[in-house]
Structure formats: C-alpha cells, structure tokens
Computed example of a mutant assay.
Amino acid sequence: MSYKQILYNTPPTDAINPSLTNNGTFRLNTVPLPTTIPADKLLIRVHYLSLDPAMRQWLTAKRSYIAPVELGAIMRGQSIAQIISVGTSLSKFKPGDWVVAYSGWTEYALLSAKEVQPFTVPAGGRPTDAMSVLGMTGLTAYFGITEVCKIKPGDTVVVSGAAGATGSVAGQIARIQGAKRVIGLAGSREKCEFLVRELGFDVAVNYKDEDWKRQLKDATPEYIDVFFDNTGGEILDACLARANRDARFAICGAISQYNTSKPKGPASFMTVISQRVTMKGFIVFDYADKYASAVQELGSWLAQGKLKRKEHIVPGGIEGAPQALVDLYKGVNTGKMMVEVAPVSEALADKAKL
C-alpha cells in the first residue's frame, strides 16, 4: 500500500503556481506505507490540512520566526489526524486517538510524540475546532486582542481580513471583551453581511467598493483605538489615517503583500508619531505558556454561544491543497480554510463519531 505527499518543488517569485505537473511550486510524491512502526513513533492518518496565509512566507522568507521549507521537503503544515498504529514505547497513545499533528501535506506520517498534540473535543465542539477557534487560529486572535492590543471596554476596534479564519474570531473576542464598536473589512458583500448578521460586528466595509475609505471614515466617527491587521497595504494606511490618540495596532499578517516580490510598507507612517500609535507585530508562539488557559476560555465562550465558528472545507483529497492555497490568497474562503484529505467516514470505527 502506498500514500501521497506534496513536496516543495520550485520557489515562487511572486504568486504560487498550483500545478502539480508543469514545474509548479509543489509536486506530488508517492511512497510505500510503513509495515513496521519504530518503538518511538506513531503512524497517523491525516484527515484535514490547515491552510494558513503564513505559508507563502514559509517558502521564501530568509529572516523570519521560522526557517523556510527546504526544497524537496514535504510542505509544512498542521493537520487533524487519527493515530493508526503506536510504537511499543508510547503507551499513553492508542489507535483511534485524534491529534493535531505537525505532519505537513501528506496522507500518512510517522511522527514522534513531540510532533502531535492530543485533544479532547469539548462539549458542543468538534475535532475541526482544533484547527480553528480552539487552535492556532483562535489563539492568534485571542492574544492579538487581549495581549497585544490590550483591549479595553469602550474601544472602537477595526479588523482587516475580518471574514477570514483569524479576523472573524478577533472581532468576536473584541465584542466579548467590551468593545464599544467593532468594524470589519472584508472583500465581498456576502462576507460583510455574514460579519454583521452572524458574528455581531456593528459595521462591515467591503474594501472593493470604490468609496470604501469614506465608509471606513463614517464607521469610525471617534477614530480607531484598536486595529487588528491581517492584510497590510492600503488598508493599513487607511486605518493609520483614522488612528486615535494612543491607538494600538496588532500586526498579525499582511496577506495583500505576500505574493509580490516588492512588498510596500505604510505610507501614512507619520501618524504613528502624531497620534502616539503603538504598532506591534506578533507571533502566536510568543504566548505558548498561556495556551492552556486561553483554550479554556475560548472553549467556554464557544459552549456558551458567545463565540461562533465558520469553516471552509475543500473536499477532494490532498491533491487539491496547492490550488486551495492559491484560492486562500484570493479570498474565496469565509472562516477557517481546510482541505479534507480523508473524510471522517473512513476513520477507525471506535473513534469515528465526531
């Protein structure tokens, strides 16, 4: 029996080439499934792959919080997986257990105990929550709003990429934490309606509208106290122009700049001086020692219905991951984007009920 992997093939200069056959960014590889399991390893089967904007930076960034993926290596990424077989020295695991795995883009993987994180589905939850509201996505939003922006009751909060995985959670946390007004920026009328009707944002602005800057101005009559940025570029500039005195800007991502060889910084930078703005970039790993308490609070909000999740799951197997990643940068998703590598119906029977 064999299984498929997706390997990093060719560095992109600008946008990712999703082709798996014509000198694309990635290529498909097939390898035999192990027949024996080393004593210190777990054989896991991947069911869902997480797709994240930072993946573009992982391919080419020379100086970042993590080394770039090496050419010829399995594409980096987290997954929701099920343990199939357990090495003899790992008695705390058993076949059928669900884990968050640092597997990369592969259907199966032999991993050490340090490369997986067991999780228990909380009341009202589901395993895919470990990739979204209760995983790195939710934690990034949580720490960005509570630790970096130090949200206060009465703040006016703006979130860019607000209908995406992290932005949609960040805006909800701001509301839960007492923000006076929460404004989201998104790329379609449908996404804006979702933010207001489903997630409780006060206003949503479609940045593809010709007059979006005027809409942003109208939506922030008392200026912006907190800005959670996932996009960079022109949106960051526009929000700097609306910054309140002592505003706090959490720079989580810059998806508008990832697929260009000449990214641009903010042109409205003088506002940082005149309004005493604090801008801070952050990585969720900075707060690893606080993960447990944060997940507990996020899980409580989810169970109480204060926090809602939204998933965009791409079916069809691992071969769809490259195109899905390209689509992520095009903004086709609302909420957390994942690739379904294997449906839950194919999980080991004892643990298949989700």
Rank of each mutant, 00 (worst) to 15 (best):
L7F: 04
Y8S: 07
P11D: 09
T13D: 11
A15T: 13
A15W: 13
I16E: 10
N17R: 11
N17K: 13
N17I: 03
N22D: 15
T25G: 08
F26W: 13
F26S: 04
R27P: 03
N29V: 05
L33D: 11
P38H: 01
D40Q: 12
K41M: 10
P53A: 09
P53S: 11
R56D: 07
L59E: 06
K62Y: 05
Y65E: 08
I66P: 05
A67S: 14
V69M: 14
E70T: 13
G77F: 11
A81C: 08
A81D: 13
I84P: 00
T88S: 15
S89G: 04
S91K: 15
P95S: 12
W98R: 14
A101I: 02
E107K: 10
L110G: 01
L110T: 05
A113L: 02
P118K: 15
V121P: 00
A123S: 13
R126C: 07
T128W: 00
A130C: 04
M131L: 15
L139P: 06
C149D: 10
C149F: 04
K152D: 11
D155F: 01
V159Y: 02
S160M: 09
S160A: 04
S160Y: 06
A162M: 05
A163G: 02
A165R: 10
T166K: 02
A170F: 10
Q172G: 00
G178I: 04
A179M: 08
A179N: 01
L185V: 15
R189N: 12
K191G: 00
R197H: 12
F201A: 05
A204K: 04
D209N: 15
D209A: 13
E210C: 00
E210Y: 10
D211K: 15
K213T: 11
K217H: 13
K217I: 01
A219M: 09
T220V: 06
E222C: 01
D225H: 11
V226D: 08
N230S: 11
G233R: 05
G233A: 14
L236K: 07
L236Q: 11
D237N: 14
A238P: 01
A243V: 01
A243F: 05
A247Y: 09
A247E: 08
R248I: 09
R248K: 14
A250P: 05
A250C: 11
I255R: 09
Q257A: 02
T260K: 11
S261A: 15
K262F: 04
K262N: 12
P263T: 03
K264Y: 00
G265Y: 09
P266N: 02
A267M: 07
S268I: 00
T271P: 02
V272C: 10
I273G: 00
S274N: 08
M279Y: 04
G281D: 02
V284Y: 06
V284G: 03
D286V: 03
Y287P: 02
Y287F: 15
A288E: 14
S293R: 14
A294F: 02
V295T: 12
E297I: 06
L298G: 04
L298N: 11
G305N: 12
L307I: 08
I313D: 06
I318V: 08
E319M: 03
D327S: 13
G331Q: 06
N333V: 03
K336S: 07
M337K: 14
M337Y: 05
M338C: 14
V341S: 07
V344R: 13
S345L: 01
A347W: 10
A349H: 13
A352G: 00
K353V: 09
